[in-house]
Nucleic acid binder design. Structure first.
Length: 867
RNA sequence: GCCCGGAUGGUGAAAUCGGCAGACACAGCGGACUUAAAAUCCGCAGACCUUAACCGGUCGUGGGGGUUCAAGUCCCCCUCCGGGCACCA
């Protein structure tokens, strides 16, 4: 066998080391296998977000997995029973696009990509427990999506309704609100999302809106940023509903209503007759005496009813609606020029009986609150602007507690009181909000309420490559189900398999509708002809609960055994990109609560701690094909090895910050590993020798090196425990190596005992193990370490050995550094003071001046204040 | 407009609790080794002033103010960059 040049001269050669260990690890599936709940060890669930199998890992993945892998390995070494799984978020549109392009079936394309990426992950040396691998596009997984769907349908959490939905013309499918970013598709930055009226399946995430908001306060292990984003997204606002009676209501006949949200959401109220009253939602009911108009959304049922009787008004309302629609589609809703039209009708303020005009405004949204507001120009900026434009009355009803007439609009509610509000004058605004809404409830014309920005999750997708929705439409109907009505399949009919032979097209409508064998079925209740639902589920359904499946991935009788999930959950540490702050991370919290209420699990939240890593950028921009700044992980690994690539990803920046990829930096890490390799190899024999009984006495050099070692252990251990600033951990290890290099001559001269050499190198390798696993395994073996390095106990810093016996104290005069003096560690203040003031440089500096004060910060600094 | 981050040498960054600003690297420069180069090893390295050189000095963490014996760090105001939300009643 011909050895390559590097190997021959004993140099660090990752190309030889890494495949050797990879082969050994691949042959030993037990190496990273999670143990059972009876392991006797504390559990630790370490999870990285599962990738979409595009076929190629990118640097973002490398960074994500390097962080997670270091943590998992560290926790193993700390004696935990670690679950560290991986899987594939394998449904989704790219597979269909690839099918169109290359004429490859989506399943084949996806599985091929998974195989390729798995190879890359193994090449990286990632410590995954492949026995629990999850692939979401396979029936043994997606059947449980269907199972959950049926459970939710049973509980009324899955329902069908016609509504305005987001439609991406490029994807040819509906999108959830969360998948629309700045009015554009999350997959197509250039594509403006259209609004369409479609009947779709929804999951009732709004039922958990309150709990989803409240839970955020308890998620202390989550980044504040993510919590804030979710809070904003859910958009909880407390306020009141108030009914304004429509003046002369009997004259108007109610028109057909199309949008359920324009009804009053209160029970026992006005649903019976649309046009008797208008229910407004307000967060400032305290200002209601200042209401000078009621404003309706163009789609509001009352607006429609008025329009039905008045062709001129109808045209104007239609124009307003058009403007709103346009603005919404071009994402200019926030900048829409406010227009309104007076309907000529009046509504009665129930608090004071005052009649106010009813307007229709293009800025009023039908799908927020009740689609109707009371306009209080004096105390709301938007209302003020509108009233000024159209010459509506402006009535001041709030004033500062301390008096005065501030410029309008005056919107404060703290330290402000009611005026011109009848018997309520003088009451604080915040109190008034409570009292007025309670009164409204007593009197039956309103109530306190809470409104959310969050909408139910639309999960229907008109695409092929996703989980079939397990519903059929009974063609003839039967008792309780009209012809064409929805019938849920029984559990025994699961899984509803995706047909394999299929022609994928981009022409609207689900491709499944064209597969007769799939489409035509029988009704599970009456046995008559039935058509299957041809939409598939949003892929975010798949990722909402995949991490539970990891605890019991092979079970074919349940989604997972509760006992197993209850042992492993909550996830101790979840690691991924911040781009999922709203989408995946809110859906999976919702799913967890549903599963809890189904009695499957006990935890309220999926993950105890969440870490969002920064992006990997190159030349100042996010890596992307179009910018041509993509760095291939494969190429880096080929050139420098997996260890150096991974270590660089951790060294170049703290993990939560963006990381600028510089190849020279990877080369630097490689050089560093080369130095360690040279030393460890050189002293391997001494290490093996030194592992026998320790010498009683230590040389001075021993002490110096051991001090540095234990300081390093303390530093690295601390970083794992708290901040995860692995860049500083690795820097500390480099400093230790520099110290060893500087002591090399002394070591060669026999001034360092074998016991000390053994302790230093043994621990050095342990410290490197989470960051450079191939390298650590190789060195461990070379030095005669026992067993697997990743199961060796994590080193413990010895405080006594780490302590300095002499420390350098900077001496300042009036806060300016003058010199540094050496004192024995633990010297008392007086001794330090004496040392400082007897220093020549310090003396020169204070010559002829009076020392007013001496500040001694123990072990830190001395500052002489002079005049 | 509102809410989160962030700004430190040529570059990535460090300074974790108010106590030596720039650890550790990258790039650069000088040297050793070499016929030469690569690799490796040793050394220099914030800016400016002063000096033949040493020595010495001043300034310096986006800008301005403040608190303090002492501020990258705390407080107030402002600028710029990144992200999120946005007529949400």
């Amino acid at each position: 066998m011909v050895k390559d040049e590097n190997e021959r001269d004993g140099r660090y050669n990752p190309a030889a080391i890494e495949p050797k260990w990879q082969a050994r690890w691949d042959a030993d599936p037990a190496l990273y296998a999670a143990e059972g709940h009876d392991s006797g060890k504390p559990k630790y669930y370490c999870l990285e977000m599962l990738p979409y199998p595009s076929g190629q890992l990118h640097m973002g993945h490398v960074r994500n997995y390097s962080i997670g892998d270091a943590l998992a390995r560290h926790m193993w070494m700390r004696g935990y029973n670690v679950l560290h799984p991986m899987g594939w978020d394998a449904f989704g549109l790219p597979a269909e696009n690839a099918a169109l392009k290359n004429n490859t079936p989506p399943r084949e394309w996806t599985l091929k990509n998974i195989a390729a990426m798995k190879t890359q992950m193994r090449r990286m040396g990632l410590s995954y427990d492949w026995a629990n691998e999850v692939t979401t596009c396979l029936p043994d997984y997606y059947r449980w999506n269907q199972w959950f769907f049926l459970k939710m349908f049973e509980k009324g959490l899955a329902y069908r309704k016609k509504s305005k939905v987001n439609w991406c013309p490029d994807c040819q499918t509906v999108l959830a609100n969360e998948q629309v970013i700045n009015g554009r598709c999350w997959r197509h930055e250039e594509t403006i999302v259209e609004l369409r009226d479609l009947t779709q399946w929804f999951l009732k995430i709004t039922k958990y809106a309150d709990e989803l908001v409240e839970g955020l306060d308890k998620l202390e292990g989550w980044p504040e940023k993510v919590r804030t984003m979710q809070r904003n997204w859910i958009g909880r606002s407390e306020g009141a509903l108030v009914d304004f009676a429509v003046d002369g209501a009997s004259a108007v006949t109610a028109g057909p209503s199309t949008s359920p949200s324009t009804h009053s959401v209160r029970s026992g109220s006005v649903q019976d007759d649309t046009c008797k009253a208008i229910t407004v939602f307000t967060t400032r009911v305290d200002t209601i005496f200042g209401a000078t108009s009621v404003q309706l959304a163009p789609e509001h049922a009352v607006a429609k009813a008025f329009a039905a009787e008045d062709a001129e008004l109808a045209a104007k309302v239609e124009a307003l609606l058009e403007e709103q629609k346009k603005a919404r589609e071009s994402d200019a809703l926030g900048a829409i020029e406010k227009h309104g039209v007076n309907t000529g009708r009046f509504a009665v303020n129930p608090f004071n009986g005052v009649k106010v005009p009813i307007w229709v405004g293009n800025y009023i949204l039908a799908d927020y609150g009740t689609g109707a507001i009371m306009s209080v120009p004096a105390h709301d900026e938007r209302d003020f602007e509108f009233a000024t434009k159209y010459g509506l009355e402006i009535k001041r009803v709030i004033a500062p507690k301390d008096g005065g007439e501030p410029e309008l609009p005056f919107t404060a509610e703290e330290d402000a009181v009611l005026i011109n509000s009848g018997e309520w004058d003088g009451l604080g605004c915040v109190d008034a909000q409570q009292k007025l809404s309670s009164l409204a409830k007593e009197q039956g014309f309103g109530e306190p309420t809470v409104t959310y920005r969050l909408k139910d999750w639309g999960v229907s997708r008109q695409r092929y490559w996703g989980t079939p929705i397990p519903m059929v439409y009974c063609q003839n109907g039967h008792a309780g189900v009209e012809a064409g009505g929805v019938v849920a399949l029984p559990e025994s009919a699961l899984p509803v398999l995706l047909p394999e032979q299929i022609e994928i097209t981009q022409e609207g409508g689900s491709p499944l509708g064209k597969v007769a064998d799939f489409l035509n079925t029988t009704c599970p209740v009456c046995g008559g002809p039935a058509k299957r639902e041809t939409d598939t589920m949003d892929t975010f359904v798949d990722s909402s609960w995949y991490f539970y499946r990891y605890t019991d991935a092979k079970d074919s009788t349940v989604p997972f055994a509760s006992e197993k999930a209850n042992y492993w959950f909550p996830i101790d540490q979840y690691i991924g990109g911040v781009e999922h702050a709203i989408l995946h991370l809110i859906y999976s919290r919702f799913w967890t609560k549903v599963m809890r209420d189904l009695g499957l699990i006990k935890n309220d939240e999926p993950a105890e701690r969440l870490f969002t890593q920064g992006m990997v950028i190159k030349d100042g921009a996010k890596m992307s094909k179009s910018k041509g700044n993509v760095v291939s992980p494969d190429l880096m690994i080929e050139k420098y090895g997996a260890d150096a690539t991974r270590m660089y990803a951790l060294f170049a920046a703290p993990p939560d910050r963006d990381l600028e990829w510089q190849e020279e930096g990877v080369a630097g890490i490689s050089r560093f590993l080369g130095r360690v390799h040279r030393l460890a190899t050189k002293y391997a024999e001494l290490v093996r020798e030194g592992q026998s009984p320790q010498l009683a006495s230590r040389t001075q050099t021993d002490q110096k090196l051991l001090r540095k070692l234990h300081q390093t252990i303390a530093k690295v251990t601390q970083d794992f425990g708290g901040r995860w600033h692995f860049n500083t951990s690795i820097a500390a290890i480099m400093t230790l190596i520099n110290e060893i290099v500087a002591t090399e001559a002394a070591m060669d001269a026999g001034e360092v005992s074998p016991a000390a050499v053994a302790e230093i190198f043994r621990n050095l390798v342990l410290l490197l193990a989470p960051f450079a696993p191939f390298f650590a395994a190789e060195m461990w073996e070379q030095m005669g370490g026992e067993g697997v390095v990743f199961r060796a106990a994590w080193p413990v810093a010895d405080e006594d050995l780490a302590r300095e016996n002499e420390i350098e104290i900077p001496v300042q005069v009036n806060g300016k550094l003058v010199n540094v003096v050496k004192v024995a560690a633990g010297s008392n203040d007086d001794a330090v003071k004496a040392a400082a003031s007897s220093d020549e440089k310090v003396k020169a500096r204070i010559e002829g001046k009076t020392v007013v004060k001496v500040i001694v910060v123990p072990n830190k600094l001395v500052n002489l204040v002079v005049k």
